Simulated assay, not measured.
Amino acid sequence: MAIRKKSNKNPPVLSHEFIVQNHADIVSCMAMIFLLGLMFEFTAKAAVIFVTLQYNVTIPATDVQSAETISLYHYGIKDLATIFFYMLVAIIIHAIIQEYTVKSKLLHILQHINNNELSFQKINRKMHFSKTKHSKFNESGQLSAFYLFSCVWGTSILVSENYISDPTSLWRDYPHTLIPFQMKFFYILQLAYWFHAFPELYFQKTKKEDIFRQIVYIGLYLFHIAGAYLLKLTHLGLVLLVLHYFVEFLFHISRLFYFSDERYQKGFSLWAVLFVLARLLTLILSVLTFGFGLARAEDQQLNFSTGNFNILAVRISVLASICMAQAFMMWKFINFQLRRWREHSSSQPQSVKKKFVTAKGKTSRKERENGINGTVTSNGADSPRSRKDKSS
Rank of each mutant, 00 (worst) to 15 (best):
E369R: 12
D382T: 15
T289Q: 01
K266I: 14
A46D: 04
F18M: 02
I372L: 11
M330S: 06
T234S: 12
L233W: 11
Q214G: 03
F333E: 05
L277N: 02
D79P: 06
G154K: 07
A61Q: 11
N114M: 03
Q337T: 10
L72G: 02
A320M: 10
R279D: 02
V318K: 04
F42R: 04
F290Y: 10
R387N: 00
F50K: 10
Q121C: 01
A313Y: 13
P349C: 03
D166P: 02
T101Y: 14
T82R: 07
F18L: 02
V89A: 12
A44M: 08
L143G: 02
K131M: 10
Q204L: 03
K9F: 14
K366L: 00
S130F: 08
T62H: 13
Q265I: 02
L53K: 08
L178R: 09
I123L: 14
V314Y: 07
A192Q: 02
N8M: 02
F50P: 10
S392Q: 04
S119Q: 07
F249W: 13
L201W: 03
T132K: 13
M127H: 06
G37P: 03
H112W: 03
I284N: 07
K78F: 15
F203H: 15
L201M: 15
I322Y: 07
A81R: 01
S347T: 13
E139F: 14
S144G: 09
V48P: 00
I316C: 11
S15W: 04
I33Q: 05
T206H: 04
A95E: 04
R279K: 12
F246V: 11
R125C: 07
L170S: 08
I93W: 08
I33P: 05
G76L: 07
